[in-house]
Write a protein that binds this DNA or RNA. Structure first.
Lengths: 146, 146
DNA sequence: GTTACTGCAAAGCTTTTGCATCCCT
DNA sequence: AGGGATGCAAAAGCTTTGCAGTAAC
């Protein structure tokens, strides 16, 4: 059950299809470099320019969204339905949070800013890293953020 | 009514005091480069290493927090009380949102991740840019994110 | 007197850009 | 056929690092 990419409204080159295939159902929230490395296995001539170009085009056509959770680099999500994320501050793993929150801004702020979107970001420690830090007894050092 | 910086627990060099002074009460959410440029007026030998070093030390001692709202670069906030932000996707201006939201995760997720912090990020268009885009009739092009 | 910070410069990542060539529609 | 995409390489941002000298505690 693959999406019909013809409807996206962009030229479908083999490279773009490979990037789309790499993103489809991908819940790892890959960075541009992750995508580049993955797609390069199949297209050894794939360039960064093409990856960034394609991500930009897909973003404009509502096929991916760009995440800002990870302050080290941009990460991408093929799931464009509104949802939130939690990131492990140790390893950088990002998980989806499919819960809806009531995020109503007070009048004062709503009048000032024309709000287009809102996201909740949770920061914590994933089970894997939690176990490791407990074993090592080293606390939360080497953590990525906070 | 300046904070007593002795309590922070880090060595207080003139450079660090200048960075602290630049941050105190600063609600512009500056980037490292913004801080560098500002502090350099007073300390022309100030280096990036020192800015990043100091920000890291202050972060570890709970004196600043690092924001991820702006996917282009890290920005810093001397206000470490839990609060949220809204960013203008056109000019990148960030404003504080001092409203508290009920952000309780479902059991399922809470059990998996050990949550340490959570932030809400609003994206929109600030009054200044909103007026400009309306005048130019050019829509929201050249926007930074989304 | 130690320990830790500073400054400089170089390196490391991530992201963007220019341009000739190529190919999808 | 034409407009847009690709690939390459170089450049541009942002952030980190190594190291010798220096200053805070």
């Amino acid at each position: 059950m693959t999406k019909d990419y013809k409807d996206i409204g962009i030229k479908l080159t083999p490279q773009r299809l490979a990037i789309l295939a790499c993103l489809e159902g991908n819940t790892t929230h890959p960075s541009a470099d992750d995508i580049y490395k993955e797609v390069r296995k199949q297209y050894p001539t794939m360039s960064f320019a093409t990856v960034y170009n394609t991500l930009e085009a897909l973003k404009e056509h509502g096929q991916v969204s760009e995440l800002s959770v990870d302050s080290r680099r941009r990460r991408y999500d093929p799931d464009t339905k509104p949802h939130h994320h939690m990131m492990c501050v140790v390893c950088g793993a990002i998980k989806d949070v499919h819960e809806s929150f009531r995020l109503v801004l007070p009048e004062k702020e709503r009048k000032q800013f024309r709000i287009l979107d809102s996201r909740v970001e949770f920061y914590g420690i994933c089970p894997h890293c939690d176990m490791k830090t407990k074993t090592e007894g080293g606390g939360v050092n080497g953590s990525i953020q906070m």
